[in-house]
Structures are given as C-alpha cells and as structure tokens.
Design a protein around this nucleic acid. Sequence first.
DNA 1: GCAAATCCTATTTAATAAGTAGGATATATA
DNA 2: TATATATCCTACTTATTAAATAGGATTTGC
Lengths: 142, 142
Amino acid sequence: MWNKKTKYALKALSYIGRYFGSERKVLAKEIAEQHQISIKFLEAILLELRNAGILGSRKGKGGGYYLLRPPAEVPLSKVIRITDGPISMLTCTSLFFYEPCADCDSEPICKIRETSLAIRDSTLAILDQKTLEDIIPVRETA
Amino acid sequence: MWNKKTKYALKALSYIGRYFGSERKVLAKEIAEQHQISIKFLEAILLELRNAGILGSRKGKGGGYYLLRPPAEVPLSKVIRITDGPISMLTCTSLFFYEPCADCDSEPICKIRETSLAIRDSTLAILDQKTLEDIIPVRETA
DNA sequence: GCAAATCCTATTTAATAAGTAGGATATATA
DNA sequence: TATATATCCTACTTATTAAATAGGATTTGC
C-alpha cells in the first residue's frame, strides 16, 4: 500500500501540474487547504520533490512551487520512488534500491524472487508509462 | 515491499509443500532452524495459515504441519493477503479490503485510482496464477 | 503418566510513519 | 530599506505498525 506521503505528493503534483505553462506559482498553503493536508507535512514533501528535481520553487512574496517539466514528461515511477521507496516487493529485485536478501542462498535459483521480478516488471510497465498528465483531471471544454 | 511475516510464510510453505503427498508432518522448530526464523514468531504465522485454511496441523508427539491441498492449488495471492494484507496500492481499489479513501470526492473520476487499479490487475494476474508449486525448488532427478 | 507438539493470549521492543515546532533565508514591493 | 510573505531546514514528538518474546494451556502418542 502507498503511504500518505505518496498520496499527498500525487495530489499536490496533480494540482500544481494544472498550471504548467502559465506563470502561476502554487502555494503550499493553497494545496494544504484544498486537500486537508497538514501544512508542515506537505511543506516537507514539496521540499523533497523539489530537491529531487521534480518541482521548482521561489521564495518570498509571489513565490510558490511549479513543475520543472511538462506533466507528460514526469513518470509516476519517479514520484513514487521518492515518496514511497522501492517499487519492488523484495529488495533483491529492486532496480534503484537493490540489496541482497539477508539469508539468501542463491538469487538465480530463488523461486520467490522470480515472482517478485514478474510483479516488478508489470508494475513498472505501468508506472513508467503513466505520467502526471494521467492524473490531472481533464478540464471542461466550456 | 512484503513484510517479514510474508517472506517467512512463503519460505515455510515452500518447505512444507515439498512433503505434500507423503505422510510427513513438518515441525515448526524444524523450519525455524532451517531458515533462522524466531520459533515463536514462526509459530504464530503457521497458526494463522492454519486458521485461514491453508495448513492442517496435529498436536502432540508425531504432530506438525502439512498442506491441506496440493501446492499447485494454493495461489500466492491467498497467502499474501493473509500475511501482508491488501495487494492493492489503495484501499479504494482493493477487492478483499475495500475502503473508500478518507477524502475522496468521486471514485469514478479519480485518476490516481485508475493507475492503482491497473497495477492491482496486473499484479493479481501474476499472484492468482502463481502457486506454491512455483516456489518449491525443483527436485534433482537422480 | 510423561514427553512432545501445537495452540492461544498478552506483553514488550523496535522500527517506521506521520505530524509539529521554531526559526533561518530569500524575495517582492512599497 | 522596512515589511510582509513564502520557501527552506533541522530537530523533535507522537502514533502506528511490525517483529519478537513470554508463559502457559491443550492435545496426542506411547
């Protein structure tokens, strides 16, 4: 299950992403109120997304957060790795967080690992292909 | 990521499954020593698997645990739901542990839910199809 | 009756997630 | 240059869950 940090991050990015292309910068406070998220917790999350190169920000009056790249160029896999850690079910099948299992005798032979690999592949096929654009609500064409 | 309970359960079931068809009953102690698992923790896990209808058991001298059905008839999805809970990334897309999201406006419209659904479907396609037989090491044909 | 095994409940400890606090730093504008 | 506004950063606290432990009750075979 995704943790709250991840759900908040996805909601926040979906919100911020709507304004990509405009000059609008989005305030942490604004998002927190919209989605009933603790402002301080959200600040920490946005900061992490910024430090990871997903968001840009500007301090002071008129400041706020904005997407650095078009929503369609930000895969969900990237976001989720930042906020939720490994996508894989076992560290020994993780691409970005690889660690051998504590008591593994042989990775090539481990049959549980095989299943974990299959799940990782199919999950990643989705999360690499889906982007922020896919989680931004479609605008009404008035 | 799967928790330790799940990894222990899969290892234990893989071990016990090898003896399906024979009269052999497997001791908790035996598995714990083989896999360096805390005996008491493992006992609790085996008990849960028993209460969920996956394992049978017999108390007292000559007792132990055994599979109730052939390994090929026990899907991994069933085991994992017992030890790890929901397979889905969001409760609102869970088949067995469904709960609406705390602050969800509309499930049919939620785009994050869509992604979670796709992941659940592809993961479940694997975990429903894979069984204990798939995680039992192949025996050498001497 | 005794030894061997599961069964059951409760408790403790460790790890992680979630949230809070307080202020430092940068920026726009009057 | 003063002020208001916003992000940035570190540390801390609290809540929740995972993992492990303890102690004995119950069942069974011999």
